[in-house]
Design a protein around this nucleic acid. Structure first.
Lengths: 128, 128
DNA sequence: GTAAGCTATATGTAAAGTACATATAGGGAG
DNA sequence: CTCCCTATATGTACTTTACATATAGCTTAC
């Protein structure tokens, strides 16, 4: 990673918070997508990949990624196993389950609907 | 209002929470928009109008509306005044300020960008 | 006249979610 | 040996949200 993942300041400052910054819960579908497309299979790799991702322009917090991955495992959308590394610490490798892929598809349907509604709303506002 | 605004259950249940349910912070731009278009000028009216609104399909919590309106007033995006009612309790009437309109425009720009990103992402997922 | 029900605003509080900090540890470069 | 990068994990304060509840004016039905 090029940079030490600068912390995205928000909360009291940024009024567009949830949608504009980290897109909060969208971390979940992004992780599932990266897994589904073999772009990432462990935490640190997700951290790099997710930060280059379109929907999320701010740096994603490492803590959020590791905790989200654990949550996905608890609900059975991913499974994990340890893989020793030749150079560096061991990695926890994640794999997508069929249930996880189905969950990603549901996310896609929701995001499409909501995304369209947001664009539509934006156009309504632009006409003011 | 036809119905007593059934509470939108989510949290532990609904995994699509933020985006799928109340769209959380989107309450703010929706309120500003309703004000800008003279569709609502006080809390209870926002409650009715916002629930018929496209982006938010779940019932919006009254507490969130009143607190959001107060927040908008603190930041100078709206101003309020009391208006007595011939039939029923007094209403706190809100008006949009120029700063509030500008804020709504900024919201629109953000929502358009994010909405497009979400639709794009949804299509990526659909191809899996 | 009083109880029920609608309009209307407001706040208390527990739970959930996020940001930021920090702890731990393996391995390579100098 | 020290510094830095990779890699995972957790503590915690803060913010946001959901849901409940309190208050009160007015209207309609009994």
């Amino acid at each position: 990673m090029r940079k030490r993942a600068r912390r995205g300041q928000r909360s009291t400052q940024d009024p567009f918070a949830v949608i504009a910054s980290n897109l909060s819960r969208l971390v979940e579908p992004v992780l599932l997508y990266l897994l589904a497309t073999d772009q990432a299979h462990y935490g640190y790799q997700f951290l790099e990949a997710a930060n280059d991702f379109a929907i999320t322009d701010a740096a994603i917090d490492a803590g959020v990624i590791y905790r989200t991955l654990r949550g996905l495992e608890e609900t059975g959308y991913v499974v994990s196993s340890w893989a020793p590394s030749a150079s560096g610490p061991a990695k926890r490798i994640y794999e997508l389950t069929p249930a996880g892929l189905a969950h990603l598809k549901r996310w896609a349907a929701v995001l499409e609907q909501r995304g369209r509604a947001m664009v539509y709303f934006a156009h309504l506002c632009a006409d003011l």
